[in-house]
C-alpha cells in the first residue's frame, strides 16, 4: 500500500519545553490513523507540523510527496483540517459558510450531502451562533471535508458531541475512509480510537511510544485475556493447561476460568470442539486499548512529570 504521510525524526520545542521529541511514523493510503495520547503529549503540535501550520524544529515531513511548508499551496488543496476550537462568525449561516469554503477549492465536494451525513440537513439557514456546540463541531468537520481532500486531519473531532452524534460522526468518518480518503485522527478518547482506527500511534510526553493496530497494541501490552465458561462435559484440565497460549486455569464452582495470551480463545474452543464439549455461557474479557494505553504510558513512565503543558 502506498504511503501518503511520512514523518521522520520530527522535533519541536517551545522555548525550554520539548513538545515533540524525534517522532517518526508513516501513514498508508486509505486508513484511519489515530494519534493517541494524554493531553499535552504533543499530538496537536505533530499534526500542525504535518498540516504545514507550524515549522518543525528538525526532521522531515512528506505529505503526498509534498513538503508541508514549501508546497503549502498544493497541500491545502488536498489536505482538509479540522482544528480544535475554531469557530466561524456568529452571524454567518451554515449554507453560506459551506458555499464560501467550497469556493476555495478546485474540486469541492457537494456540501448538501455532507450536511446530511453529519445530521445537519435543514440547518442551511441557521446562523453559526445559533447552533449547539455539537452542531458547530459537526459543521467544522464538514468544512474540513468540503474541499474533497485526499487526507483529512481531524483534531479531537467528537469532543462535545452527545453519544448519538458521536456514533453518527464515527459512521461518517468510516464512510469517508471507505471512499479512499486517508484520515488522521487526533484523540485522547480510547473508545474512539478502538472503534475507528486501523492503526494508532501512541504519543506521550512528546515521544512516540508505540504504533500498531489497536488489537496489536492491546496484545503487546501483554495483559492476559480471561475466558469463563461452563463446560457441558468433563474437561481434560491437563490438555487445556498444556496449550501454549494458556497461562492459568481456575474453577469457580462449576465455572472454569482460563487465562492466556495471543489467540487463547481460538485454541481453547477448538480443543473443546474436538472433544465434543460445548462452552456454555462463554464470556471473554479482552485487554482493551485503554488498558494497553495505561500500561504503555506507565512503562514509558517516569518522564511524565516533565510533560510539556501545551497540546
Amino acid at each position: 500500500m502506498a504511503t501518503v504521510i511520512e514523518v521522520r525524526d520530527l522535533h519541536k520545542e517551545y522555548g525550554p519545553t520539548v513538545a515533540v521529541d524525534d517522532v517518526s511514523f508513516t501513514v498508508e493510503a486509505g486508513v484511519i490513523f489515530g494519534i493517541l495520547g494524554p493531553n499535552g503529549a504533543g499530538k496537536t503540535t505533530t499534526v500542525e507540523c504535518v498540516a504545514g501550520l507550524r515549522v518543525p524544529g528538525a526532521g522531515s515531513i512528506s505529505v503526498l510527496g509534498l513538503d508541508p511548508r514549501r508546497d503549502r499551496a498544493q497541500l491545502r488543496q488536498v489536505l482538509g483540517v479540522q482544528l480544535q476550537e475554531s469557530q466561524l462568525p456568529d452571524r454567518l449561516r451554515v449554507g453560506e459558510a459551506l458555499e464560501l469554503y467550497s469556493s476555495f477549492y478546485r474540486d469541492p465536494a457537494p456540501w448538501p450531502e455532507l450536511l446530511d451525513g453529519l445530521g445537519l440537513a435543514g440547518k442551511e439557514n441557521t446562523r453559526f451562533g445559533k447552533l449547539s456546540g455539537g452542531q458547530q463541531q459537526r459543521l467544522s468537520i464538514a468544512l474540513a471535508l468540503v474541499g474533497n481532500p485526499r487526507i483529512a486531519v481531524l483534531d479531537e473531532l467528537t469532543t462535545g458531541l452527545d453519544p448519538q452524534a458521536r456514533r453518527d460522526t464515527w459512521a461518517l468518518i468510516s464512510e469517508i475512509r471507505d471512499r479512499g480518503v486517508t484520515v488522521v485522527l487526533v484523540t485522547h478518547f480510547m473508545e474512539e480510537a478502538e472503534r475507528l482506527c486501523d492503526r494508532v500511534a501512541v504519543i506521550d510526553a512528546g515521544a512516540l511510544i508505540a504504533t500498531g493496530s489497536p488489537a496489536d497494541l492491546a496484545a503487546r501490552a501483554g495483559e492476559d485475556q480471561v475466558i469463563r465458561f461452563r463446560p457441558s462435559a468433563e474437561v481434560d484440565e491437563a490438555a487445556l493447561a498444556a496449550l501454549p497460549e494458556v497461562t492459568g486455569l481456575f474453577w469457580h464452582g462449576d465455572q472454569l476460568e482460563v487465562t492466556g495470551r495471543g489467540d487463547v480463545l481460538g485454541a481453547v474452543i477448538s480443543l473443546l470442539a474436538r472433544r465434543g464439549i460445548i462452552a456454555r455461557q462463554l464470556r471473554v474479557e479482552q485487554t482493551s486499548l485503554e488498558d494497553a494505553f495505561v500500561a504503555l504510558t506507565a512503562q514509558h513512565g517516569n518522564g511524565r512529570e516533565s510533560a510539556p503543558s501545551r497540546r
Partner: peptide
C-alpha cells in the same frame, strides 16, 4: 474576534489563507 475565534487559523488551512 476572527483571531480569537480561530477563524484566521481555520482559513490558513485552506487554499485561500
Amino acid at each position: 474576534g476572527y483571531r480569537e475565534k480561530g477563524i484566521l487559523r481555520r482559513l490558513s488551512t485552506t487554499p485561500v489563507g
